[in-house]
Computed example of a mutant assay.
Amino acid sequence: MQITISHKSTFFCQLLRESLHSRNFDVASYATSGDLSWKQISVVKPDIAIVAFPLENMTGVELVRKIREVGNGTKILFMSQDSLEAKEVDNGLDVEGHVMSTDSMSQFFFALHEIAGGRKYVSPNVEKLLASTITSENSRLDTSVLELLTPREREIMRALSDSCTTPEIAEKFTISKATVNNHRANIMNKLKLKGRNQLLSLAVSLKPYYSISA
């Protein structure tokens, strides 16, 4: 399995490359600029591209969009630096994995293994950060939307409003993480929401009404 690394710091790229090699991952290349990253990914067509935002000459978001336009099958693990970047990635960017630069190395490698196994992954820190940065101007207070949801979907929304992560929700209701993700996808489809940030925003804004609608 070939991997490429895109990050503005040469030190970070070299350090991560050595760490990946020690875990038997094949790092085909690394680059600190968006232009060089794009050139390498176009040639190598790696199984996984690790992209950190920002890069020189091109943002990480722009790089991901270029990769998706070509449709070469490369899976993307995106590393956000702060809440603004995390929200930009969450709002419609097509990536298989999303972690924070503040996540532990073990969390990073767990995300990498999940992606390599064909699963999507968002770290608990990303989910909590998105939940904590919601503002009232993004809130949608139309409580009638709750009538469109099943009792379990309303329970999921209530848990999201309490900043519960996917693993915490799975444990709370004794269901799998995949089932939680399916419920979230169904809710977003029913309510025509784009991205986890909109879902979390709505969940928090409706927090006073879950008991009433039960």
Rank of each mutant, 00 (worst) to 15 (best):
Q107W: 00
T4P: 07
L141I: 13
E56M: 12
L200T: 05
L148P: 05
I175K: 11
E137M: 04
K87P: 02
T166P: 01
V51K: 04
E96F: 11
L77Q: 12
L149V: 02
A178W: 00
F11V: 15
G118K: 08
K75R: 15
M1C: 10
Q14G: 14
A178Y: 07
V180R: 11
D90F: 07
L202R: 14
E88V: 13
L193F: 06
V180G: 11
V64N: 08
I67S: 06
V27C: 09
E155Q: 15
T165Q: 03
E147I: 00
T133S: 15
N186W: 00
Q81A: 13
V64R: 08
K177D: 14
D82H: 14
F110I: 03
E69F: 03
D142T: 13
C164Y: 14
D94M: 05
V204Q: 09
L55P: 03
S136V: 12
S139V: 00
R184A: 07
M79P: 02
E69G: 07
M100V: 04
S9A: 05
R196L: 04
V70M: 10
P167A: 08
P46G: 11
V122E: 02
V99S: 01
T135N: 13
M1G: 13
M100I: 04
L36N: 13
V64S: 03
N72E: 01
V89A: 09
N138D: 15
K190L: 14
S205M: 05
P124Q: 03
A49C: 10
L130G: 06
I41W: 06
S205K: 07
E85M: 01
M157T: 03
G97Q: 07
S80C: 02
K39I: 05
R158F: 04
S9N: 09
G60D: 04
H98C: 00
F12H: 12
P124I: 01
S83Y: 08
L55Q: 02
S104R: 06
I169A: 09
E153L: 09
R196T: 05
E69Q: 14
E18G: 10
S37L: 07
P54H: 00
M100Y: 03
G195I: 02
D26L: 12
Q107S: 11
V43K: 12
L93Q: 04
S161N: 10
V99Q: 01
Y121L: 02
T143M: 11
A185L: 09
H98G: 03
T102N: 08
S106V: 02
E56S: 15
E127K: 00
K75N: 13
L16T: 04
G97L: 05
I50H: 08
H113V: 00
V64A: 07
E153A: 11
K66I: 05
N189R: 15
L148A: 15
L146H: 15
E85P: 05
L202G: 03
F78L: 01
A28D: 07
N189Y: 13
L77E: 14
L193H: 05
S101G: 13
